[in-house]
Structure formats: structure tokens, C-alpha cells
């Protein structure tokens, strides 16, 4: 279980997160929706501590970080318990697909090279890239790169995988292959938090949907409740703007 309490984050005088409370149960898939600039990316980055929250508490099972005064070790542990899939993939440029996935196992988890290799090959096969093990990121399409990114995140066996608009940098015809992989691992019961603009995808993969605006969670609930009968005015307006036809772009 992941529990965020009163997460606050400011950039200078601009308060981007204004006290976020969010609980994610084990195996849940949470979709975060919201207009541009509402703080979705910042929230994910805070959970992974790529951004230092000014205040709040992050709890993962029995491990807890007090954000105001964290020690280095807690940050390191938090990062090992979470994994991030980036909008821009951020694969290690100078490493092959296989090496990208192996890196965390071998360097961080200290698993032997041989074992790390076997496990990484399995993961790359799972995301449909068994034939691209020795390709460098520059030799892969966006969709393939993102699938390597997902395999790299899975390799660490994290408590939660954070996806920041994993398909928004992709050409439309490549979106499907990445969403299919996410859908597949969602079925395996891995806890995930996904920021996405793919409404159709959110609706059928997510078990819980969160709508954010201006640094607060406006509304959250089961997908069919939130999509069909939103309570808050801001949610209604946002959903109206994103027409269902356009959202079902898979």
C-alpha cells in the first residue's frame, strides 16, 4: 500500500502541489487525469524523489519518509521501491536494450551478471523485444524504446511503477503497442500510477481514477463513476473538453 499525506511542493513562490492525499492499494492501477500544468508530473516525481517535496509524508507498506527532513538513505530506499517510466523514455543512450534493463539489477540490486542477463532477456521478451536485445536506443522506434523503459522499470521489482504520459511522445500508430504492454502487466497485479491523456485506456485499465487541477485532487473514484457521473463542476468541464471519440484512439 502506498500512502501520500499532505504532499506540498513549490517552485519559488509558485505552489504546484497544495497538499495531496492519496492512498493506493496493492495491485491497484490508478490513473491521474487533469489539465496541463495541474501538477501531475510533479506529483509523480515527488513519489520517486526526483523532486523534493517541501512537506508531507510518503509511506510504502511499513517504510515511511518524512519529506521535510529526509535522510539520504531513506531517499535511496524510496527510489528502489519505486520505478519511473518517462514521457521521453530516458533510456541510457550508451547502453543496449539488454544493458539498459540489466543495469539496475546488476548495479543496484547486486545480482550476478549472468542472472541479471537471464532475467532481463525474459523481461524484454515479455514486452515483445526479444529480437532487439543488442540494439541501442538510437536504433529503436519510440514505441520500442518505451517498452524497454517499461522492462527496465519492471526489472527492479518495485512496489509501484509510475508512468508519466508514457505514450504522449509517440506517433499514434505506436501508442497501441505500448498500451498493450501496460495492460498486460496491469493484469499481473503490479501496482501502477499512470498519468495519461488516453481516456479510453484509463477507463478500462484503471481501477481508480484521480482528477487533479491546480495542485489539488478535485475528485477521485471508480472509473465508470467518475467518467459517467462526475460530481464536481471542474471535472465535468474537463471531461467535456476531451471528447470520447478522440480519446478512444487505440
Amino acid at each position: 500500500m502506498i500512502k501520500l499525506t499532505q504532499i506540498r511542493k513549490s517552485f519559488g513562490r509558485n505552489e504546484v502541489l497544495k497538499g495531496i492525499d492519496l492512498t493506493v492499494e496493492k495491485g491497484e492501477v490508478v490513473a491521474i487525469l487533469g489539465p496541463s500544468g495541474s501538477g501531475k508530473t510533479t506529483l509523480l516525481r515527488c513519489i520517486n524523489y526526483l523532486e523534493k517535496p517541501n512537506e508531507g509524508r510518503i509511506v510504502i507498506d511499513d517504510f515511511s519518509v518524512q519529506c521535510r527532513r529526509p535522510d539520504k538513505k531513506a531517499i535511496h530506499t524510496l527510489r528502489q521501491k519505486t520505478a519511473m517510466v518517462f514521457q521521453q523514455y530516458n533510456l541510457f543512450k550508451h547502453k543496449t536494450a539488454l544493458e539498459n534493463v540489466m543495469e539496475g539489477l546488476f548495479v543496484v540490486k547486486k545480482i550476478s551478471k549472468d542472472e541479471a542477463r537471464i532475467r532481463s532477456i525474459e523481461l524484454l521478451e515479455k514486452v515483445g523485444l526479444g529480437n532487439k536485445l543488442d540494439s541501442y536506443p538510437s536504433e529503436l522506434s519510440g514505441g520500442q524504446q518505451q517498452r524497454v523503459g517499461i522492462a527496465r522499470a519492471l526489472a527492479l521489482n518495485p512496489e509501484v511503477i509510475l508512468f508519466d504520459e508514457p505514450t504522449s511522445a509517440l506517433d499514434p500508430e505506436l501508442v497501441g503497442e505500448v498500451l498493450a504492454v501496460i495492460r498486460k502487466i496491469a493484469k499481473e497485479g503490479i501496482t501502477m500510477i499512470i498519468v495519461t491523456h488516453e481516456m479510453g485506456f484509463a477507463q478500462d485499465v484503471a481501477s481508480h481514477v484521480v482528477f487533479m487541477d491546480e495542485g489539488v485532487i478535485v475528485e477521485q473514484g471508480k472509473p465508470n463513476e467518475l467518467f459517467t457521473s462526475p460530481k464536481e463542476e471542474r471535472t465535468k468541464q474537463f471531461l467535456k473538453r476531451i471528447t470520447p471519440e478522440a480519446a478512444y484512439s487505440i
Partner: peptide
Amino acid sequence: VNRGQIEAAYSIGMTTFQAMRRIILPQ
């Protein structure tokens, strides 16, 4: 070297030293 590279290194749990030595400096 793109900033995303060190963030990716951090995100898989590397220390700053590991990220420097294995990811940033080679590039």
C-alpha cells in the same frame, strides 16, 4: 548529457556516484 539520463539513473535507485561513473561520465 541530457538531464533525463541522471534522472533515469536515480529512478532505478543508483547513487550519485554510480550514476556519474556508469551513465554520465561515459557519455
